[in-house]
């Protein structure tokens, strides 16, 4: 393999990597808070609210992400009457699908994290005069983060690879450009590079997450 060939295929793949990373960042930024909100709703005293939140988690976790993406990108615009208003730019639609999906998983992770916090923490905060919001913000959430960081890291790494599902809804990303090169040049080298790029991303992500875990050790 010549250097020229490497140069030719690596450029579009790096372009695709940008899309991959952008999707990753958007999903992390939006699905974590949304997931936490869903957890809180699932714990609501109002039965109907918690029922809806749990129903949401059930449906999202119980169906394939790929199906959800297909529905949002291609299914919604086909709904008679309102469909024409639901045609979104493909990347935007995919982002929405990913955020909605990952939020459900994060919600479940946060639920476990909250269960792990001793009820004495709430009581101590209460007798010190903190209100619910203050308790959540300064006592509960920081402790929940510590407990949930390992499973969240796991999801984050899965997300890096799940971004390749964009391929199925025809948003050009890393895997798309690799596939194009494979079809065109009849060689598996681009697949190999694509794999390498995913590995590099997860490698750095792992380092960042380990650092975060150390920061939340409280020792």
């Amino acid at each position: 393999m010549s250097f020229d060939y490497f140069n030719m295929i690596i450029r579009p793949m790096l372009e695709g990597t940008k899309v991959t990373l952008l999707l990753f960042a958007i999903v992390i930024v939006f699905s974590l808070p949304l997931g936490f909100l869903i957890t809180l709703l699932a714990r609501s005293r109002f039965k109907i609210v918690s029922w809806l939140a749990n129903g949401y988690i059930f449906v999202i976790r119980g169906t394939p992400l790929l199906l959800q993406l297909l529905i949002i990108c291609f299914g919604l615009p086909m709904i008679p009457g309102i469909g024409e208003y639901l045609v979104l730019p493909r990347f935007t639609a995919a982002c929405i699908g990913f955020v909605l999906n990952y939020a459900a998983y994060f919600a479940e992770i946060f639920r476990g994290g909250l269960l792990a916090i001793d009820k004495g923490q709430y009581e101590a905060a209460q007798v010190l005069g903190m209100n619910r919001w203050q308790t959540l913000r300064v006592i509960i959430i920081p402790q929940m983060i510590r407990v949930t960081l390992p499973p969240i890291s796991n999801e984050a790494i899965t997300l890096v690879k799940d971004t390749s599902l964009l391929y199925a809804v025809a948003v050009p990303e890393l895997l798309h450009f690799a596939q194009t090169a494979v079809n065109r040049d009849f060689t598996i080298v681009p697949y190999f590079f694509a794999g390498l790029i995913y590995l590099i991303i997860t490698f750095f992500l792992t380092i960042v997450l380990k650092r975060l875990e150390q920061k939340y050790q409280f020792e």
């Binding site: 001793d118 004495g120 101590a124 007798v127 402790q143 409280f218």
Partner: peptide, 12 residues
């Protein structure tokens, strides 16, 4: 003010 058997300090 209240003091608990299990302390309930904030570990973080």
């Amino acid at each position: 003010g209240m003091v608990f058997q299990q302390f309930h300090l904030f570990p973080h």
